[in-house]
């Protein structure tokens, strides 16, 4: 079981800030494919992966990163701090 978090417009498009996901995905890319297959709102939110960043256990990662041992996955648009 992985906790998946969504921020900013991803959270709005998917309609929830976080959820527990039962997954056998080996990588972030596989997890995204599983989510997109669930419902159109996920497919719409992840439509342009280049516009989405991912963090694994609160560290920035890329879509090919393995999920083995990861407890928290967060998806969000490019950050706009400062």
């Amino acid at each position: 079981m992985i906790e998946v978090l969504y921020f900013a417009w991803l959270r709005e498009r998917i309609g929830l800030p976080k959820e527990q996901v039962e997954t056998g995905a080996a990588t972030v890319r596989e997890l995204v494919a599983e989510l997109c297959a669930r419902e159109p709102r996920y497919a719409a939110a992840f439509e342009n992966p280049a516009a989405i960043r991912v963090a694994l256990d609160q560290e920035l990662a890329d879509f090919d990163a393995p999920l083995m041992g990861v407890r928290e996955v967060a998806f969000f648009p490019p950050m706009t701090g400062g």
């Binding site: 900013a8 920035l60 950050m79 706009t80």
Partner: peptide
């Protein structure tokens, strides 16, 4: 510090106007 805070610290800004709301793009 400013350059890194801008694009490596997980903050997102949304502008709220009379017309509605809009996420600020990086």
């Amino acid at each position: 510090l400013m350059d890194y805070l801008k694009s490596r610290a997980p903050f997102w800004k949304k502008e709220i106007t009379e017309a509605g709301t809009e996420w600020v793009a990086a």
